[in-house]
Simulated assay, not measured.
Amino acid sequence: MNALSDEVKQLIIDTLDLEDIEPADIDYEDALFVDGLGLDSIDALELGVAIKKAYNVKIDNNSEDSKQHFYSVKTLCEFIAENRA
């Protein structure tokens, strides 16, 4: 899962144009939203589209589960690994 983790971190940085942030700066288990990386709902939508394109995995943005999937890099990687086509 290490390679996937690195890919997801880079995807987050590239998709959201996060300047001055390197993959190593994003902790695997830290929250991505609010207190963690500080992402918002628009970022989640953009990231969801990028994940769909990169991994052919769709995250339903309207479901309660989507909040759990987007919680951290770890939860995103687990979701992608379980649902990859």
Rank of each mutant, 00 (worst) to 15 (best):
I13G: 07
D65G: 03
F79E: 12
L32H: 09
D20T: 03
V34T: 15
D27K: 09
K74C: 06
D35S: 12
D14M: 04
K52L: 13
L4W: 08
V34R: 13
N83H: 14
Y55D: 06
K58N: 13
L4T: 02
D65A: 11
S66T: 04
S63K: 02
I26Y: 01
G36F: 09
Y28T: 05
D43W: 12
F70E: 01
V73K: 00
G38L: 04
S63Q: 00
L11I: 08
F33V: 00
P23T: 04
Y28E: 12
V73A: 03
L4H: 02
K58C: 06
L76I: 10
M1R: 13
I13N: 07
V73Y: 01
D40H: 06
L4E: 01
T15E: 05
N83Y: 04
A31M: 11
S72N: 08
L16W: 03
I42F: 14
L32E: 09
E22S: 12
V8F: 00
T75Y: 10
I42E: 06
T15C: 09
L32M: 06
E19D: 09
I59G: 01
G48S: 13
E7H: 10
E46M: 14
A50R: 02
G38T: 04
E82V: 04
E78T: 07
V57C: 04
N56A: 14
A50F: 00
D60Y: 00
S63I: 03
L18T: 02
A81E: 15
A44I: 05
D27S: 12
S72P: 14
G36T: 07
M1E: 11
D17F: 12
